[in-house]
Design a protein around this nucleic acid. Structure first.
Length: 453
RNA sequence: GGCGACGUGGCCGAAUGGCUUAGGCAAGGGCCUGCAAAGCCCUGUAUCCGGGUUCGAUUCCCGGCGUCGCCUCCA
C-alpha cells in the first residue's frame, strides 16, 4: 500500500485508511482573489497525480478541496476596485477551474465554500469558548493556543521556541492577544464590510476555521490524509489542528506537504516577494502537459524551478512520447507487461516517487521501440500497453490521434508513390510541403506516417 | 535569535555505504534511410571544501563555505 512522508512524524509511513479501499483526502484550496499562479498549479497537479494513482490502484477517493471565498484580501480588492466582493470571488473561481481543467486536474469530489459554512463555524467557536480554549477581545474571538498541549506538532517547534524567535518581527494584534501565536477565529466587521451575525458581534470567520469545520463535516473525524503546500504547514495547518484538538476531536491521520516553486534565482515564489508567475501564461505559451511532466520528473517534496529551459525539455520529452504513442497505436490491444507494472506500483507506493516512475516509462518506451524495430510485436504491444497504463495512472495523456486532414493524407500517399517510383525530388517536395504545414513526417518501409507536431 | 532542508555530469533531476552508480533535454560518433525524420546503439568531464568512522563514502558523523525555507498573509 501507499507510503507517504508524514509531516507530523517526519517519516515515510503507510497511509492508514479508516475504511479499507476508501480514502478521504482534504486539500486546502485557493483564496479566490486573483489568478492562479505556478504554486497553485504545482499543488493541484501533485494531488491530482496522487488521486489518479490511488484510483488506478482501486481505491475509492473522496477529495474535498475548499474555496476560501471570504477573506481580508478579497475585501481589500473589492474596496480598491469599487465592486462587489462576490463579483471577485465568482470570477476568480471560474478562472481557477478553467485553468485546472486545462492542465488536466480533475475537479475535486467536493468543493465546499467558506461562506456556506459560517453558521457551523460560529457554532464551533461557541464550543471552543465553552471549553475555555477561546476568548473574546474587542476586535474578535481568538483561540488560546496554550490550551493545546502539543501545539507546534507540525511546526516542529514548541510554543516557547517560536516565541523566543521572530527577531524584530511585529506580532499582529499583539495588544489584544494572550499569546503571540493566538489566532483569530472570528473577526468583527467594520461598517460596509461583509458580515454574518454571531453571539459576539457581526463579523466574518478567521481563515483557519473553515477547513476544520468542512473537513470534519464532510470527511469525518480522523480522516485519512490532509494535504497542501509546504507554506501552509505553519501556521494554517497547525492552527486547523489546534482547533480540532481544542474541540476534543481527532483530526487528520496523515499530513502531506508539497515543495515550493522557486524562481530563477532559487527563491520561493511568494506573493509578498512579487515574483509569482501566472499559471495562465504558462498554459497559453506551452503544451499544458509540460508542467505535469516537469513535476513528474521532480519529487513532490523537492523545490522545483520553472524556467524556459526546464519547460522546453519537458515539451520535447512529451513530443517523443506522443510519437511513440502514434507508432504503438498500430500494434493493437494487449495486456500490460506485468513486471513493468509491478515496478511502477513499487516506486509509486514509496512516497509517490514519480521521478523513478517516469524514468521507468521512458525505459519501457525504449524497450518497446526496440521490440518494434525487431518485429517482436507481441512483446512490443505488452510494453506499450504498460506505458499507456502508467501514463494514465499519473494523468499524463498521450496523443495517439494524428490529427491529419484529408489533403495531408492524400499527399502522404502521393509521397509513397513518388518514392516507389524513385521520383525523389517530388517526394522531397511533398515532404517539405507537409512539414511547412506543421506536420511531422516519418517515412518508414511500411509507408509514410504523418502527424501533428 | 530558534528550527529545518539542500549543494550530483553542459542544463534539469533521481538514487545509493561497495555490485552495471536513474531518467529527460542538449552535444559528438555510428546503424537504419534515396536523403531526411523517427527509432536504436555507443560516448563524454558528476557527487561543494576539509577532517573523521569504515576494508571501502557521493551516501554516515563533525567542521567550513554556499543556497534556500519556516518562525507573519501565501499552494
Amino acid at each position: 500500500m501507499l507510503n507517504l512522508y508524514d509531516t507530523a512524524t517526519r517519516q515515510v509511513r503507510e497511509v492508514h485508511l479508516r475504511e479499507p479501499g476508501k480514502i478521504g483526502i482534504y486539500l486546502c484550496g485557493p483564496t479566490v482573489y486573483g489568478p492562479p499562479h505556478l504554486g497553485h498549479g504545482r499543488a493541484t497537479l501533485v494531488y491530482d497525480i496522487l488521486r489518479r494513482y490511488l484510483t488506478y490502484r482501486g481505491i475509492e477517493v473522496r477529495l474535498v478541496s475548499n474555496i476560501t471565498d471570504i477573506d481580508d484580501k478579497i475585501i481589500d480588492r473589492a474596496a480598491r476596485e469599487n465592486r462587489p466582493w462576490t463579483d471577485i470571488t465568482h470570477k476568480c473561481e471560474s478562472v481557477w477551474f478553467e485553468a485546472m481543467g486545462k492542465i488536466g486536474v480533475q475537479r475535486p469530489t467536493d468543493v465546499p465554500h467558506a461562506t456556506e459554512y459560517v453558521v457551523q463555524m460560529v457554532a464551533m467557536v461557541e464550543k471552543l469558548i465553552g471549553r475555555n480554549a477561546a476568548y473574546v477581545t474587542d476586535d474578535g474571538v481568538y483561540l488560546d493556543v496554550s490550551s493545546v498541549p502539543d501545539y507546534g506538532l507540525l511546526a516542529h517547534q514548541s510554543l516557547e521556541e517560536m516565541q523566543s524567535g521572530g527577531g524584530d518581527r511585529e506580532v499582529f494584534g499583539a495588544a489584544n492577544k494572550r499569546n503571540a501565536a493566538d489566532f483569530a477565529l472570528w473577526k468583527f466587521s467594520k461598517p460596509g464590510e461583509p458580515s454574518w451575525p454571531s453571539p459576539w458581534g457581526d463579523g466574518r470567520p478567521g481563515w483557519h476555521s473553515e477547513c476544520v469545520v468542512m473537513s470534519l463535516e464532510l470527511l469525518g473525524e480522523g480522516f485519512d490524509l490532509h494535504c497542501g503546500g509546504a507554506d501552509l504547514r505553519f501556521p494554517h495547518h497547525e492552527n486547523e489542528r489546534a482547533q480540532a484538538v481544542a474541540l476534543g476531536k481527532k483530526f487528520a491521520g496523515h499530513w502531506m506537504h508539497n515543495g515550493f516553486v522557486v524562481d530563477l534565482e532559487g527563491e520561493k515564489m511568494s506573493k509578498s516577494l512579487g515574483n509569482v508567475l501566472n499559471l495562465l501564461d504558462l498554459i497559453e505559451q506551452y503544451d499544458p502537459r509540460a508542467y505535469r511532466m516537469l513535476l513528474l520528473q521532480t519529487h513532490y517534496r523537492s523545490p522545483v524551478r520553472v524556467g524556459q529551459d526546464n519547460i522546453d525539455a519537458a515539451v520535447k520529452s512529451i513530443a517523443g512520447l506522443d510519437g511513440f504513442a502514434v507508432r504503438a497505436a498500430e500494434l493493437g490491444a494487449s495486456a500490460s507487461d506485468a513486471e513493468v507494472i509491478t515496478k511502477f506500483t513499487t516506486v509509486m507506493d514509496d512516497d509517490l516517487d514519480t521521478p523513478q516512475a517516469i524514468a521507468l516509462v521512458f525505459d519501457t518506451v525504449r524497450r518497446a521501440n526496440t521490440a518494434m524495430d525487431k518485429g517482436e510485436n507481441a512483446l512490443a504491444a505488452s510494453l506499450a500497453s504498460a506505458v499507456f497504463e502508467m501514463c494514465t495512472a499519473m494523468g499524463l495523456e498521450l496523443k495517439t490521434s494524428t490529427d491529419v486532414d484529408a489533403e495531408a493524407t492524400e499527399m502522404a500517399q502521393q509521397l509513397d508513390a513518388a518514392r516507389a517510383s524513385k521520383n525523389f525530388s517530388e517526394a522531397d517536395r511533398l515532404r517539405g510541403e507537409l512539414q511547412s504545414r506543421g506536420y511531422v513526417v516519418e517515412t518508414t518501409k511500411d509507408g509514410t506516417r504523418v502527424r501533428r507536431a
